[in-house]
Write a protein that binds this DNA or RNA. Structure first.
Length: 222
DNA sequence: TGCCAGGCCGGGT
DNA sequence: ACCCGGCATGGC
């Protein structure tokens, strides 16, 4: 709880300004790039610390074999899943994580995502975080992009962008930043969807780890 | 060529 | 409660 800080309305105005600038510069992103809620969940796990183009190859391999459903992945031996998702990198750990998630779905919800998404947001979030291999970003991605819940997704780009522009303290953690967005923006999953996607697009183009510098960044001056 | 990508876990302090 | 090494492929 920081005393000397922006008023809540001021934070909201900053976030609105950032959103408008990103939207104007980059256009609507239309996320998530996936056809079904389950495919979105799979993509959320596969994209952990991994380029999306690699994930697409892995998902294509699963689709070819009709494996984009919970039961199919759950019943396939882990080594087989690993071989198929190889292009996504970390294929052994990710095969285990997909197995953990599908086992969770089978055991708690009879393999039904609809059943899972009938739960209240924070209750489901807690349950997802107990699955080994699902951390905060993956959980929030599943909630927002597969389930349509108003759960803001924070990722490495979000952190880097906010910190480089001194919008949060260098020490700020995941939950603090998530709360900043969720307490200051309208509780609208469509807005959260586009906002996070725009932050990723901005990061890819202007805010890499080793900075080729933010030349022409739409957020200059914020 | 080396660095990077839409994290997370487990063991050590 | 942090901090760090490990996990791995493909693109520029």
């Amino acid at each position: 709880m920081s005393e000397i800080s922006f008023s809540r309305s001021s934070v909201s105005e900053y976030l609105a300004e950032i959103y408008e600038r990103m939207l104007k510069a980059l256009g609507p992103q239309g996320w998530w790039p996936g056809d079904t809620p389950f495919e979105v969940c799979v993509g959320a796990v596969l994209t952990q610390n991994t380029n999306w183009t690699n994930v697409e190859k892995a998902i294509a391999g699963l689709r070819e074999r009709d494996l984009l459903e919970p039961r199919a992945i759950f019943e396939l031996p882990r080594e087989m899943v690993a071989a198929i998702i190889r292009p996504a990198g970390y294929y052994n750990v990710k095969a285990s994580r997909l197995r953990n998630f599908t086992a969770f779905l089978m055991e708690k919800f009879g393999g039904s995502l609809d059943a899972m998404f009938s739960l209240a947001m924070e209750e489901l979030r807690s349950m997802l975080l107990e699955v080994n291999g699902i951390g905060p970003e993956t959980a929030d991605s599943i909630l927002l992009y597969a389930g349509g819940y108003p759960s803001f997704v924070v990722d490495a780009y979000t952190m880097r962008i906010l910190k480089r522009h001194d919008l949060v303290f260098e020490e700020a953690g995941y939950d603090e930043v998530r709360s900043l967005f969720m307490d200051s923006l309208p509780e609208d999953p469509v807005l959260f969807n586009e906002y996070h996607a725009l932050l990723v697009a901005l990061g890819r183009n202007y805010c890499r780890r080793s900075r080729p510098l933010c030349r022409g960044c739409p957020l200059d001056g914020i």
